[in-house]
Write a protein that binds this DNA or RNA. Structure first.
Lengths: 213, 213
DNA sequence: CGCCTCCTCTAACAGCGTTAGGGACGCTAC
DNA sequence: GTAGCGTCCCTAACGCTGTTAGAGGAGGCG
């Protein structure tokens, strides 16, 4: 059976998970598929557009599986859960955030955007406010995921600084945080995302309660 | 006069502005400096650490010029202004956000972090809350800047879709936004950043007014 | 049979980050 | 005075990258 473009994109997603964005080369991808590198150019115009397709694939499941707002459900909790699951989708695939960030949004994403925005407008926001909010949440999620991957890549190298209380006297507030939060374990990243989302949602709630602002 | 590492970093910052991150190669940088490529390895361990230094340089002015919270000044306005100026610093240099996002924070940044967090704690937040807030704002700023550069790079290519009201009937809320916001001009990006920051700050205010949450 | 389209190949180009090894300059010590 | 040493730069080369040119085999259709 001849190779299809979907096969190429599938393999690229797998390879991305294995070796990261820097390790994803066309030659390596071709080897994985059992073809020669230039063959890929028959199925894909460019490495760049290949990454466009990969980004689309990475978010596709997330978009599709998103349930609409159930009647009687709290819109804030719904928005929060949607943003969180998008964050998780970006985080569970290595370097996914960088790939998604650098690529143009496909038209397939429009219905999901429309649905989310319609929900926010239904909750009482103006169209402009809903749009800005959606963009803000998106930027926050992307930024969090990018930082997650960056820190992860950093941790893979030997950390030169033991990162102990190496200047507790000079930075008392930082030291207080270190003792208040315990050692930096894996769940901390999602704590930040949750906190940021809660802040935005609380801000939205305040705005809805007092529309004069 | 012999080349210094600062010269190399300076030239790298300039070259980054000229040709972007993808165009920044050691050979090209060396040519600009009038030396051969391997010479750079005398001044810099790696391309990766060179980018660390570039990131540091890009944010250095921003950190230094940041005024501490004036007595009697509103901490929220201060935080907002700091985040906005950091966003502007990331946006005015091409690809700066990607460089900064991918690199380890240098120890020089610690005092600034300490100062900002101390201010938030002084405003009434707990250390943990202050830390999470600072990280959230940072992620939001980085994400906004990354998306800004990505969209900018996209706009440089020919846009395949004229992006008119190409499905107003199918996406009524999106169409309402388009008419409410006018054409997408340059300032729109900062509108999103301002909106997101305002949401977070309003959320913080609500939290401070009602600490039971 | 010949043509056409799909799909894949080999060969090659220019460029990349990085390493090995060497050579010229100037300071310092004997 | 000269030997040694650290500093700064060089050429040559390795294996990798994305990408293009051009050729060729397989299958369907007139």
């Amino acid at each position: 059976m001849a190779l299809t473009r979907d096969d190429v994109v599938d393999a690229a997603v797998d390879l991305l998970a294995e070796v990261g964005l820097e390790g994803l080369s066309l030659r390596r991808l071709a080897r994985k598929l059992g073809v020669s590198a230039p063959t890929l150019y028959w199925h894909v115009a460019d490495k760049r557009t290949l990454l466009d397709h990969v980004a689309e694939r990475l978010l596709a499941d997330q978009w599709r599986s998103a349930p609409p707002l159930a009647p009687g459900e709290d819109w804030a909790a719904w928005l929060r859960e949607r943003a969180l699951s998008q964050y998780r989708a970006l985080v569970t695939h290595r370097d996914a955030a960088l790939v998604v960030a650098g690529n143009r949004p496909t038209d397939d994403a429009l219905p999901a955007v429309e649905a989310t925005m319609a929900t926010l407008v239904g909750a009482g926001l103006g169209p402009r406010e809903a749009f800005l909010t959606l963009m803000s949440v998106g930027h926050f999620v992307i930024g969090s995921a990018v930082e997650y991957h960056a820190e992860r890549a950093r941790a893979a190298e030997a950390s030169p600084v033991p990162h102990g209380g190496h200047d507790a006297a000079a930075h008392p507030t930082l030291a207080a945080v270190a003792t208040a939060m315990g050692p930096p374990d894996g769940a901390r990243h999602e704590d930040v995302v949750r906190h940021g989302l809660d802040l935005m949602i609380d801000g939205l709630r305040a705005r809805l309660a007092d529309p004069a602002r």
